[in-house]
Amino acid sequence: MTITIAMPSAPPGTAAVREIESGAAKISVRDFDFFYGSAQVLHGITLDIPDQQVTALIGPSGCGKTTFIRSINRMNDIIPEARAKGTITIDGRDIYAPGTDVVALRRRVGMVFQKSNPFPKSIFDNVAYGLRIGGLTDKRSLREHVEKSLIRAALWDEVKDRLDDSALALSGGQQQRLCIARALAVDPEILLMDEPASALDPTATTKIEELIWELKANYTIVIVTHNMQQAARVSDRTAFFMLGRVVEYSDTKTIFMNPKEKMTEDYVTGRFG
């Protein structure tokens, strides 16, 4: 049996159709405002983040990238006096709707923080944390997951003989990869990465970028980066933020080769910011 679905009557090749071809919107943001107390730091953010692609957020320091990415797993909820307006939907469900199960949401939406934050526990327990929270107790299966996640985060070789050591004894870059491993272990659908490579050397950075490429087949990835080359290398789509607004959001190629806005061009070519 075949079912024919009537497509919206947009001519082939237009933006709408490319959008659908390259992956449906996983996350839709509409008129999203964000306030810390009375200070508004995000203004009417509207964008669609496609499934199985990498979306990069770029922009000068303090423009609201972290605030925005933390809104996608409602991590800003715990900041007193902070307030969000507008909608963010994931798979069509408004995550800010009353009655949303925030704990379940965060299990689906993993996050790697700008400041790495390993728990004061052993390396193993750090990676196993989310698995245990999810109810996994079987020792062997825990070990397998931990090993797999550490391998993917390019950290396994450095720590395989000292899994019981404190995670705080790791170097800054190792801690950052540990936090990536920890987020991967629970197998989220969406992965939010806030400057995941800021403390990494070129080799580790390359490995993390390769990982992002590999993960993209199954995950939706949003990555904040200050490194233009990195944004150009790993992402399919790029959003340029400035003073809490999205100045331009488009295919990464367009943003870097042929931006519509003068400001975007100035920023990506390093003329300011």
Binding site: N73, M75, I78, V103, A104, R106, R107, G110, M111, F113, N117, P118, F119, Y129, G130, I133, G134, C179, R182, A183, V186
Partner: peptide
């Protein structure tokens, strides 16, 4: 705290 919450705690 944020790290734990982000992992679904």
């Amino acid at each position: 705290r944020e790290g734990a919450l982000a992992l679904g705690a």
